[in-house]
Design a protein around this nucleic acid. Structure first.
Lengths: 221, 221
DNA sequence: GTCTATACTTGGATAGAC
DNA sequence: GTCTATCCAAGTATAGAC
């Protein structure tokens, strides 16, 4: 059996502990999606991961610690996806198109459900609010910057501050997840995005330079 | 002590049981606001109400039953408030103004926090989703109708379907509550509403008939 | 360092006292 | 009709085996 670089940088080698650690994070993510914060107990998560419940406390100190690691994982993963997708976009219509196609992914895969669950849980567990807030801030920041980017050379830029639009987009995003998840019907969310795309295209046409209507998907991740 | 109409219609007389029942509902609402769904246990709620824990099961069959009664209470109360406030509004700018001033009430008082907590809880507790969905539907319906009302004689009406706008408004509403609650900062929410009001006033000015900029508060409740 | 068995706490629910 | 005492299930956390 070839073992590449025993004394090399720690990042590469996968110890047994690292494997269970990852299994626990994955199981925590799935559990948050399916059962929300209140349903994400040590026993349920550990069962799903197929490991002993006590390992959560060994690897993450507490259930809360594990859930935060899960939030980190989802947040990092999705933001990488978003960054690469938004890269090269330069009109409001394109941005709406890209946001729309990615949100569809998120709703289907339940990525935002993890954020929603953790924000909800922040109300319950002392000290969690601060930690979750730290991890949500990049989302509003990212949205603000993306909006600012396409608004810079548009006449809309002077009407709507990117700060407010970024906040609104993330809020809308979270709210849509809640409503969609609640009655299992994606149709209103889809219709809303179609609507937004149409409107953005129209405004882009009226206004300045930009304006290809259809988004590029940005498959790279 | 005067006891009006002992044999009269049941609605008026307040039995001891009714009082406890109401105390429990009030305590459940406050507990959902402060500690979220996961923190709303029978013992915590009963302690807050100053009654024995077992009474929850006597009066409401289960904790879930009590929480749904609490949701009903908040939902009914707020919708009465909304209805009376929107009554007489006939321009988009006015509507945004009214919505803005009431949302400020809601954020301060934590009314929407109860909705958010229950929607989050719906992911956890089997069967709860359906019940919560039933109680949230009137909100999107109300928003849709309010939007449709002011959009009817506006040129915007043909651009944006009230259905989608209503859905978006409720989603935005829930998302704003989450973000605001999370980092305890009302400023972004306030700024967003100021922004929306400004934009609606502008669009109203460009477009059709309506357009007094300032909302009436609709103090009656 | 990794994992298991076990201790302890809290929560939902009910039988029966008042 | 109201409340208490109590049962059992589920939760977090740790002491100690490997």
């Amino acid at each position: 059996m070839v073992k590449a670089g025993v004394a090399a940088a720690a990042a590469v080698r996968t110890t047994r502990g690292e494997a269970t650690r990852q299994q626990l994070i994955d199981a925590a993510i799935e559990t948050l999606k399916d059962h929300g914060y209140a349903g994400a107990s040590a026993r349920v998560i550990a069962d799903r991961a197929g490991v002993n419940q006590g390992l959560i406390f060994y690897h993450f100190d507490s259930v809360t610690g594990l859930l935060l690691a899960a939030l980190d994982s989802v947040s990092d993963m999705r933001q990488a996806r978003y960054s690469s997708a938004v890269d090269g976009v330069d009109s409001p219509a394109e941005l709406v198109g890209v946001a729309s196609s990615i949100l569809r992914e998120d709703l289907d895969a339940g990525h935002v459900a993890v954020l929603v669950a953790m924000i909800a849980g922040a109300a319950t567990t002392p000290g969690l609010g601060e930690e979750v807030a730290k991890r949500i801030a990049p989302w509003t920041g990212f949205a603000r910057d993306a909006v600012a980017g396409v608004l810079a050379d548009s006449p809309l830029g002077s009407l709507v501050p990117a700060e407010s639009v970024g906040f609104a987009v993330v809020a809308l995003y979270l709210g849509m997840e809640m409503l969609t998840h609640l009655d299992g019907d994606r149709a209103p969310a889809t219709a809303l995005f179609d609507q937004a795309l149409q409107l953005a295209t129209l405004l882009g046409g009226l206004g300045g330079a930009g304006g290809t209507a259809m988004p590029k998907d940005g498959e790279r991740m």
